[in-house]
């Protein structure tokens, strides 16, 4: 049988050595291509839908703070996403800062301090935390967290208003701080799972080495945490990216106001909560849908950048410390 160009191409894949293998590979390629197609389609859609607003406003759509929707007069419309971008990054940073000590402690407690009998049921609980739908967290944030944050934030803003973080007196419990705390609660189990996975892979010999020097349990934990530091950084970076993309829970507690403020006691907005709250009405205006897609592009870019950076950081660390060849 003669070898066609397709056959030659397929044979270049490692593990393809016969006609049977070629057929097998050919049959499975569409599945892989679907994934590629999905990413390309997403990128294509976001770029295409962002064009109207971009060609009108240019990059001002990302750097401007004005959000002006005018029905029936497209020329008067103007959309600046900066408050939303600021809010996304700000709330996610707060979330990661709170989640960092919580997730590290949770991972260490589960791996190091939990008796074997309890470990199964406790890790089921953390699995459940990660599997709980975001809308349930949002419901809790709306009905419990926000009303209970309000007195705390009021107190802070009346007693510590000289700190810019608490400079504004809250008008309700729906604030940047509430969104940050809720996002922290949601991302802790995820970050803890990433850290746990690395921690559980530390060889017994390294653990024994730490103990054999006469280190206390806490000192051993500190040494071992140093060893999995990249997974902590990566886990928190991924948690940050997830927080930036989180939609329904945040939109229920952040108050949705287009302002840029350092005060966490003020209400705010994030890109995804803006999309969630405005998309339904966007059809009444000429450029708003496009502006919201441009916001999607921003989340897209932040998520991709953080993910790539986290993976790159892990790789580099592995090469440097673990001696894995590049």
């Amino acid at each position: 049988m003669s070898e066609g160009p397709l056959s030659r191409l397929l044979r270049r894949v490692r593990g393809v050595r016969s006609r049977d293998d070629e057929r097998f590979l050919l049959l499975h390629l569409p599945a892989s291509l679907t994934l590629l197609l999905v990413i390309l389609a997403m990128l294509g859609v976001f770029i295409a839908y962002s064009i109207p607003v971009m060609s009108r406003e240019g990059f001002h759509v990302f750097t401007d703070t004005t959000w002006r929707a005018v029905e029936g007069d497209p020329q008067a419309e103007w959309y600046g996403l900066l408050p939303a971008i600021y809010g996304s990054v700000y709330t996610s940073l707060i979330a990661v800062l709170i989640a960092a000590p919580l997730s590290v402690s949770l991972a260490v407690a589960l791996e190091e301090l939990t008796p074997r009998r309890l470990r199964g049921s406790l890790s089921l609980l953390t699995d459940l935390m990660a599997a709980t739908p975001t809308i349930i967290y949002g419901l809790w944030g709306l009905a419990f967290l926000a009303p209970h944050m309000y007195p705390i934030l009021s107190w802070l803003s009346s007693h510590a208003s000289w700190i810019p973080l608490f400079s504004k007196h809250p008008s309700s419990g729906y604030t940047i701080a509430t969104a940050g705390v809720l996002l922290a609660v949601m991302s802790t189990p995820f970050a803890a799972a990433v850290i746990r996975e690395a921690y559980s892979m530390i060889p017994l010999s390294i653990r024994e080495a730490a103990y054999s020097l006469g280190a206390t349990r806490l000192e051993v934990i500190r040494i071992l945490l140093g060893m999995v530091k990249p997974s902590i950084v990566a886990g928190l970076a991924l948690a940050f990216a997830r927080a930036v993309g989180e939609t329904v829970a945040v939109s229920l507690v952040i108050g949705n106001s287009m302002t840029i403020t350092p005060s966490v006691t003020d209400s705010g907005v994030t890109v995804s909560s803006l999309i969630a709250s405005q998309f339904g009405n966007a059809g009444f205006y000429h450029y708003m849908t496009s502006a919201l897609f441009a916001g999607g592009l921003v989340i897209f870019a932040i998520g991709l950048a953080v993910n790539v950076a986290a993976v790159w950081y892990m790789k580099k660390w592995e090469e440097k410390v673990m001696g894995v060849a590049p």
């Binding site: 060889p203 010999s205 390294i206 024994e208 080495a209 730490a210 040494i223 140093g226 060893m227 530091k229 410390v321 673990m322 001696g323």
Partner: peptide
Amino acid sequence: DPNPFPHM
């Protein structure tokens, strides 16, 4: 087995 701490 030699077991120095790999991250130090």
